[in-house]
Design a protein around this nucleic acid. Structure first.
Lengths: 262, 262
DNA sequence: CGACTAGTTGAGGCCAGTCAATGTTGGTGG
DNA sequence: CCACCAACATTGACTGGCCTCAACTAGTCG
C-alpha cells in the first residue's frame, strides 16, 4: 500500500531521465520528494530519528539516480563516494573473485541501503546491478560521516546499518555452509516473504526479480537445482510456482524444512 | 619476532589472573603495556593515526581480559558493550542457527578486533571462544563512538574496521558458494600464511590452533574431508602436515589450485 | 519467422557426506 | 614411570545429493 504511494510520488522525476547515459544525476531542486515525505523513511537511515536529525538526513540527499533494468550502479574497483538508498525497484550485488567466478551476494529491495562494502576503503568491493527499473537516493558518504560526527542518533543508525550487513552475511554463511538445497531455497522464500510484508506487499504471493541462475548463484546452487527444488516444492503443495510468480501455500511446512536439523 | 616481545611485556599481568572466575578484568593502572608501546598498534584501530589520536585510543583501553583455552569472551545474546582487540593468542567466533547447527564464522589472530557483530545493536550475534590462552584489550564501544565523533581519523578507522569485516565475509561467502574442498583448504592455508607473515611469524610453517572439525565447520566441510584433503596435499607434495603443524612446501601450486576456475 | 533467453526435465557421474574401524596424542592418576 | 582414557585424527567403504551435459519448451524481440 504505502509503496504504491511512493511509486507515484516518484513518477514525476521520470521525465528527466534520458536514455544516454543510462545513469542520470538529478539536481536537488528538481527532486520533489524529500525523505520527510518518503514513506520508506522509517526503513532506512532515518529510523528513530527526531525531526531535526531527519531534516539533516534530508539535506544529505542531493541527487537521485534512475536505473534501467540491467544498469550498473557501481562496479568493483570504482572509487567509493556514496551509499545508495533504494527508493523503488530492486538491485543485486555481485562479488567477483580472481578466478573468474562471481556470486550474487545480495538482493536488495526498497528501503535498503547498499554500497556499505566500500565504507572506509577507497573502492567498491562489489558490483550493483538493477534487476528492474530502479530509483536510488545518493547519500554522499563524506557528508553522512560528518553528520554522524555531529549527531549521535545518526551515528548510531550508521553503525547499525553496517552491523546489519555483517549479520546478514553471517546468516548467508550459515546457509551456504550447513544447509541443503531445499533448506536454502526455503530460507530464501521466507526471507523474501518477510521483506515484502514489511514493505506492505503480500507475504504470500510475490514476483521474483531474479532469474533461476541468479537465485542459484546467491544460494550456492546451480540453476537446474533451483528449478528442480521449485518443482519439488510445487509437487508437495508447499508453493505454487509459475515462472517468477511464487505463491506460498504452506508456510508452516516450509518453515519446518528450515528448522529441521538435517 | 615482535610478537615474542609483546608476549613478554604482557607477562606481568598474569599474576592478577585468578582461576575463578575465568575472565578477569584488570585495572588500567595495573596495565603496564599501553597501546603506544604495543607492537600491534599499527594493525588495529590506531593504524595511521597521529600521536594525539593514538593517545586517545590508548586511554580508551581501560581493561584487559585473560582467557584460558576454551573460555568464552562473549556469547550470543549477551548485551553488547565493547569491542575486543586480541593482544596475544587466538579466538574463534561461532554463529548459531535456530535449527541447532553452528558454524565457525571466523578465526582471529593478534592485532584483530572482534565483536563487530554487536555494533549498533543491543546484543552480540555470535560467540567468541579462545582457542588457546589469550589476552584481549577491552574497547568500550560507547567511548569509542564518542571518540570517533571528535576525531575524523578515529571515525575513519572504525568505519574501515566494520567494512573489512563485511569484505572478509564476502570472501567467505564466495568460498562457501563456489569452491571445492581442495580450493577451500587452499584458501584457508594461504590466508593463514599471509596473516602469520604480517605478524612477523614464518609464512611457511605454522601451527594450527583449530581442530579438523573447527576447520571443517569454518569451510563448510566435514572433519573427514578436511583430513583427507590434508593427506592428499601431502601426498602431492604441496604441504607437509603433522597433526597441527603445517609446512607450506609448494605455495605456487596451492595458489594455482585457488586460481583455477573449477 | 528465426534467434535468443529463460526455464524445465532427464540421465549419468562425481564429489563430499555418512558410518565405522583404527591410529595417535596428550593429560591424569595410581 | 606406566596404564588408562578421552579427544583428536586418519583412512576405508559406501551412499546420495548435487553438478554436468543435453534435449526440449515457452516466451520475447527484431
Amino acid at each position: 500500500m504505502q509503496v504504491a504511494v511512493m511509486l507515484q510520488t516518484a513518477r514525476p522525476c521520470q521525465d528527466f531521465a534520458t536514455p544516454q547515459p543510462r545513469t542520470v544525476l538529478l539536481d536537488v531542486k528538481r527532486v520533489q520528494v524529500t525523505c520527510q515525505t518518503c514513506k520508506l523513511q522509517n526503513l532506512c537511515l532515518s529510523e528513530g530519528l527526531d525531526a531535526e536529525a531527519k531534516s539533516h538526513i534530508d539535506e544529505l540527499v542531493t541527487a537521485r539516480i534512475r536505473l534501467r533494468k540491467g544498469d550498473t550502479l557501481f562496479r568493483t574497483g570504482i572509487p567509493f563516494t556514496s551509499l545508495y538508498a533504494i527508493r523503488s525497484g530492486s538491485c543485486k550485488t555481485v562479488s567477483l573473485s580472481e578466478n573468474g567466478h562471481d556470486q550474487v551476494a545480495g538482493y536488495h529491495m526498497p528501503g535498503e541501503i547498499i554500497g556499505t562494502d566500500g565504507v572506509g576503503t577507497d573502492a567498491h568491493a562489489c558490483q550493483a546491478v538493477a534487476l528492474e527499473d530502479t530509483e536510488v537516493c545518493v547519500l554522499p558518504f563524506e557528508r553522512l560521516a560528518a553528520l554522524s560526527r555531529q549527531n549521535r542518533q545518526v551515528q548510531h543508525n550508521l553503525h547499525r546499518l553496517l552491523s546489519r550487513e555483517i549479520a546478514r552475511e553471517r546468516v548467508l554463511m550459515l546457509l551456504l555452509g550447513t544447509m541443503h538445497a531445499e533448506q536454502r531455497l526455503a530460507v530464501f522464500l521466507l526471507d523474501l516473504s518477510q521483506r515484502y510484508q514489511v514493505l506492505g506487499y503480500s507475504s504470500c504471493e510475490f514476483v521474483l526479480r531474479m532469474t533461476r541462475e541468479e537465485i542459484g548463484s546467491y544460494l550456492g546452487l546451480t540453476l537446474e537445482t533451483v528449478s528442480r527444488v521449485f518443482s519439488r516444492f510445487q509437487r508437495e503443495g508447499l508453493v505454487q510456482v509459475q515462472g517468477r510468480v511464487v505463491k506460498l501455500l504452506d508456510r508452516a511446512s516450509v518453515k519446518r524444512l528450515v528448522d529441521s536439523s538435517d
